[in-house]
């Protein structure tokens, strides 16, 4: 195993741990805002997982997926924020 494989494998392990912790936060989350932030963070970590996987297994097309996801993903947060704002007002 060369250095790059070790690095990407370790980063994938850490990202999976973070994902598990965020899932606990989304399940428990006392308020809706916690859940919204957790969902947003899930998407960002997913982008990291995609990039690490693309490097690890040298699949170039996963990077395109990461770009599209990064451009689109905050839309869900905006929509949820609008929903929460309309319900509270």
């Amino acid at each position: 195993m060369n250095f790059l494989e070790v690095a990407t494998t370790v980063s994938l392990v850490f990202l999976s741990t973070a994902l598990a912790l965020i899932l606990i936060r989304i399940k428990q989350g006392p308020t809706t805002s916690d859940r919204v932030v957790g969902l947003d963070l899930t998407a960002i970590i997913l982008i990291g997982v995609l990039c690490a996987t693309a490097v690890r297994f040298s699949v170039e097309s996963l990077l395109d997926v990461a770009v599209a996801l990064a451009l689109v993903i905050f839309l869900g947060t905006v929509a949820l924020a609008k929903f929460v704002g309309r319900n509270s007002s």
Partner: peptide, 22 residues
């Protein structure tokens, strides 16, 4: 020839219009 196509493109365009609508 590569990942993409009409379905993915249409979804991204719909996202753009949804953002404009928000």
């Amino acid at each position: 020839n590569e990942p993409g196509g009409g379905f993915a493109g249409g979804l991204v365009a719909a996202c753009a219009l949804a953002l404009h609508m928000f």
